[in-house]
Each structure stands twice: as structure tokens, then as C-alpha cells.
């Protein structure tokens, strides 16, 4: 079993769920770089799901893994059907097959009946008080990564310089104990190469001073990257100073390093269609089930600071969230990749 060696510093992500519009640009940005080869068709290291929902893999939140009171808890290995996706179509037959209207474009027989965003924009509740929001997810690059401890081949480790959880694929034998142990179910299996794979934190970019693709490409400007110990950076300010950015499912006890600013959503409507300004469209209990007890304080802080700003007062928190200059999202990783000249 692997051992966790603490890193000197820790990179962390913050996603603002009030700015995320569910567009999947982060997912696509990641896929374009890292999962284009055979064996990776179904792999989406970065995904965005509509909450509440079953997400990807289907029903991941109840698959177990992680720790309970410091002890690893058993977890399920998601099936290829639960991940879904990777489907093919009968393009040749329809576009060039000479069969006319006898055939139409469809997925080839046996295609998976789930995908990385199958329950997009469904959510819960009853119209007009339905509710939903978007949750972008990648490997949490945990401080207490169950995957590292679970690996029988010592293939996983925390990068000592930045805390990314990385895999030595030469050591990985595809045992998939990591995927069972991960409570976020963010580890995929590559059947062509017989190795497990997950988000690499875009380390080749980070080495060059370039922010990860999911952050740098986010059109909603909903993502930040930075070192947690950089007290002046937006990540540390949002996580530690303002305490509005929270880890997902802290009860999994892996100490994730991806943080979320909880969604506010519009006020619900009374039965007569008037606004219930004091009500919660998203049940507070649901948010608590995702982000724990601290979510209430985070929501209160957001609402207080928004109200301050609306009444014309300054708010450092609101300024941070506005992101006047896009580079603020990138922390110390501001290099333009096009400047790089490979020898």
C-alpha cells in the first residue's frame, strides 16, 4: 500500500458556482489536451454536472470510498456503463451509404445509456420553484488522498512541490484500487493501456508557468488556481480569509483541494407568484449535504457582502468575485502558452 508524503505547498482550485454556467468548456479543454487517444474515449477528467442529479459516474455520491474517522472505507468500482459515453455513430452508412431515408444517424448498437452530462439541466423541485446548479469536478488533489494509500503498486504520490496527486504510469498495473478508494470517483481506466488515469493537474503547463486548461479556458471566469499558502492570492482569500469557498463532501475526509463558492439562486415564488425574498430556492439542507455545516456561514457572508455592495459600499469580496482583470484567476501561473518556444 502506498504512503502519503505531505507536500511542501499545495495548489488549490476555487470554482464559483454562481458564475459557472455549465458550458463544459473546462471539460472540453481538458479532453482536447489529455484524453484523445484510444482507451480514453470515455474519459472526462474534468466534468460539469447538474445538481441535484446522478452525475458522472452515475450515482457517484453513494459509491463509497474515502475515510471514516481516519480509516479507509470500502468503495465501489464504477462500471463502464456508469461512466457511459464514448459512443460511435453510423456516419458512413447515413452520409455515404446510398441507403437514403431507410437509415438515420444514431448511436451504434450497444452504446452506453449514460454519459458524463446525461442529466443536464434537470435538477429537482417543482416548477416554478424548481432548482438546479452546475458543479464542475476534477480530481481533488486531496491532502489525504485515499487513492495514494490504496495503490498496491505505489504508483501514486503527491508532488512535493505543489501537492498535485500524480501517477507513475510505469508502476501502475491497472489494479484500480485507487478508483475504489476515491470517494469522488474521478479515476478512469484505460482498457487499451491497462492503466488507471485521472486529472494530472495540467502539470506540464504548471511547470511552464501556465495555468491549468480548465481554469485558463473558463469563459464564465468562475475558476481560480493558486497556492493555498499565498495569503495575498484570491484562492487563499476566498478559502481562508472569507471562508466562502468550501470543499465538496468534507465528510469523505480526504481533505480535497478543490473549493466551491455555494450557489445562491433566485428567490423562490409564493403560490400567488409573488417573490419570497427570504426563502431559499435551493433547500439549505441540500447545500449542507454537499458542503457541510459551513455552507450556511458562506451563504450568509455572500449575501451580506452583496447587500453591502448594492447599497453602494465597498466590498473586497465582491471585487474578488467580479475579477476585474482575468489574470487574477491564474495566480502565479500567468504565462501565455503561445510564448513558449519548444526547442
Amino acid at each position: 500500500m502506498g504512503t502519503i508524503t505531505a507536500s511542501k505547498r499545495q495548489l488549490a482550485w476555487v470554482f464559483d458556482l454562481n458564475k459557472c454556467i455549465g458550458c463544459q468548456t473546462c471539460s472540453v479543454a481538458c479532453k482536447m489536451l489529455w484524453t484523445q487517444d484510444e482507451g480514453t474515449e470515455h474519459q472526462w477528467w474534468m466534468t460539469v454536472n447538474t445538481q441535484p442529479g446522478q452525475g458522472t459516474p452515475k450515482g457517484w455520491e453513494t459509491m463509497g470510498g474515502g475515510y471514516k474517522d481516519g480509516k479507509q472505507t470500502p468503495g465501489k468500482l464504477p462500471t463502464p456503463e456508469e461512466f457511459g459515453g464514448g459512443w460511435d455513430y453510423n456516419y458512413q452508412e447515413v452520409l455515404r451509404g446510398g441507403k437514403g431515408r431507410d437509415v438515420h444517424l444514431e448511436k451504434t448498437a450497444g452504446s452506453k445509456t449514460w454519459g458524463m452530462n446525461w442529466d443536464e439541466d434537470e435538477g429537482a423541485g417543482e416548477f416554478p420553484n424548481s432548482y438546479y446548479f452546475y458543479l464542475p469536478r476534477l480530481c481533488n488533489h486531496c491532502t489525504q488522498p485515499g487513492c495514494v494509500e490504496a495503490c498496491p503498486n505505489d504508483a501514486l504520490y503527491k508532488d512535493p512541490e505543489n501537492g498535485l496527486v500524480l501517477r507513475n504510469e510505469d508502476l501502475c498495473k491497472g489494479a484500480q484500487m485507487c478508483a475504489r478508494a476515491c470517494p469522488y470517483k474521478k479515476i478512469y481506466f484505460n482498457p487499451a493501456r491497462k492503466v488507471s488515469q485521472q486529472c494530472i493537474g495540467c502539470f506540464p503547463r504548471i511547470e511552464q508557468g501556465v495555468a491549468p486548461a480548465c481554469v485558463r479556458q473558463c469563459p464564465g471566469r468562475a475558476a481560480w488556481i493558486g497556492f493555498l499558502d499565498d495569503a495575498h492570492g484570491p484562492v487563499a482569500k476566498l478559502v481562508n480569509q472569507w471562508k466562502v469557498a468550501l470543499p465538496l463532501h468534507p465528510e469523505f475526509e480526504t481533505k480535497p483541494n478543490v473549493y466551491y463558492i455555494p450557489p445562491l439562486s433566485p428567490a423562490p415564488l409564493n403560490a400567488d407568484g409573488s417573490w419570497n425574498e427570504n426563502g431559499d430556492r435551493i433547500p439549505a439542507s441540500y447545500l449542507e449535504s454537499l458542503f457541510g455545516q459551513p455552507v450556511h456561514g458562506a451563504v450568509d457572508t455572500l449575501k451580506t457582502e452583496m447587500a453591502k455592495r448594492r447599497s453602494g459600499q465597498p466590498s473586497e469580496l465582491m471585487d474578488l468575485l467580479v475579477m476585474y482583470k482575468w489574470e487574477e484567476a491564474l495566480g502565479h501561473l500567468r504565462r501565455d502558452p503561445a510564448e513558449i518556444v519548444w526547442s
Binding site: D16, N18, K19, I21, P219, G220, R221, A222, M306, R309, R310, G312, M318, L321, V322, M323
Partner: peptide, 11 residues
């Protein structure tokens, strides 16, 4: 679309 969410944070 970010101008919508940012205008909201702006007041």
C-alpha cells in the same frame, strides 16, 4: 455571460 454574474456582484 460573465458580465451578467459580474454585474450582479458589482451591485
Amino acid at each position: 455571460a460573465h458580465y451578467i454574474t459580474e454585474a450582479r456582484y458589482h451591485g
